[in-house]
C-alpha cells in the first residue's frame, strides 16, 4: 500500500439555479487502496473540519450495483477504468501529483441539483412508460412451464445487467439515452414473457425517451465504452429493429 498526493478540481454549484464553477482542492496522503468515493469522503471530512461546505454527491451501495454514484472524471464517465462505477474505481489508478477534474454527469435531461448531484428521474419515466411485463401478482404459471434456451436467457441477462447510472447519457456526445432504453427493450424482447407487449413497449419507451429531451443517437459508441456493466450497443441495434418493426405494423 502506498499513498499519493492529489489536486482536485471539483464542480461546485449551490443549487440548480446558481452558476457553478470549478474549485481547486489539494489532498495529501491518499491511500491507493481507497475507492474514489472514499477519497471524496476524506476530502469532505477535511472540508467540514475547515468549516467549508462538503461536496454533495450521490452514492449508496458502494459496491457497483445500485447505480447511484457517478461523475465525469477528467472527461470520462466513471473515470479511466473500464467497466467500473465510480465507487469501484480505486486510487491505485492515479499517480502521485495528478490533477483530477471532477464534473457532474450532464445532459439536458439531467438538471444539476448541487455540486455533483443530479436529477436522473427522466430514466425512471422511460421505464414507467413500458419497461416491464404487465402481469399482476398471483395467478402466474409454473416457472418451468416457460422453457427458455440458456443462451437466450444469458443474452437477456446481459441487457438486464443495466444499473441505470446514466453514464451512457452523460458520455454520449449527443446526450442520447439509447443504450439505457435499448437495454430494457432488448431484455424483454429476447424473453418469451415480453412478447405480448413487445411492440407497444418499444413504441412507448422511445416516445418517452424523445419527450424527455435526450439527444439523437449517432452511433458514436461512447456509451458502450463507459458502461460500468459492459452493456453492448448490440442492444441499440436491436431497439432500432424493434422500433421500426413496431412502428410499421402496430396500430
Amino acid at each position: 500500500m502506498s499513498s499519493i498526493n492529489l489536486t482536485l478540481k471539483i464542480w461546485r454549484q449551490q443549487n440548480s439555479d446558481a452558476l457553478g464553477q470549478l474549485e481547486t482542492y489539494t489532498l495529501d496522503a491518499i491511500h491507493t487502496d481507497m475507492s474514489f468515493l472514499e477519497m471524496l469522503d476524506v476530502l469532505n471530512e477535511k472540508l467540514t473540519k475547515e468549516g467549508q461546505d462538503p461536496v454533495a454527491f450521490d452514492h449508496d451501495c458502494r459496491e457497483g450495483i445500485c447505480g447511484m454514484c457517478g461523475a465525469i472524471i477528467d472527461g470520462v464517465a466513471h473515470g479511466p477504468e473500464k467497466e467500473v462505477t465510480l465507487c469501484q474505481l480505486h486510487m491505485r489508478h492515479f499517480k502521485d501529483g495528478d490533477t483530477i477534474v471532477i464534473e457532474p454527469f450532464r445532459s439536458r435531461a439531467y438538471p444539476v441539483k448541487r455540486d455533483l448531484l443530479i436529477d436522473r428521474s427522466a430514466l425512471d419515466r422511460i421505464i414507467q412508460s413500458g419497461g416491464y411485463v404487465s402481469v399482476n401478482t398471483g395467478g402466474t404459471v409454473d416457472g418451468n412451464s416457460i422453457p427458455i434456451p440458456s443462451q437466450q436467457s444469458e443474452l437477456a441477462m446481459d441487457a438486464a445487467a443495466c444499473i441505470g447510472c446514466g453514464a451512457c447519457v452523460a458520455s454520449c456526445p449527443n446526450g442520447a439515452a439509447m443504450l439505457f432504453t435499448s437495454a430494457k427493450v432488448s431484455q424483454l424482447a429476447l424473453l418469451p414473457q415480453g412478447q405480448v407487449e413487445r411492440k407497444q413497449r418499444a413504441l412507448a419507451m422511445v416516445e418517452q425517451m424523445d419527450k424527455e429531451g435526450f439527444g439523437n443517437c449517432t452511433n458514436a459508441k461512447e456509451c458502450e465504452a463507459v458502461c460500468p456493466k459492459g452493456i453492448s450497443i448490440r442492444n441499440i441495434a436491436r431497439l432500432n429493429k424493434e422500433y421500426l418493426f413496431a412502428a410499421m405494423t402496430e396500430g
Binding site: 416457472g143 434456451p149 437477456a156 415480453g194
Partner: peptide, 22 residues
C-alpha cells in the same frame, strides 16, 4: 414457490439449464 413463478412471469432472467428449465 409462487415467488419464483411470479418473478419468471415478470421476465426476470434466471439462470437456465441447456434444456430451458430453471
Amino acid at each position: 414457490t409462487e415467488i419464483i413463478d411470479q418473478c419468471v412471469a415478470q421476465g426476470v432472467p434466471f439462470a437456465r439449464e441447456y434444456g430451458g428449465t430453471l
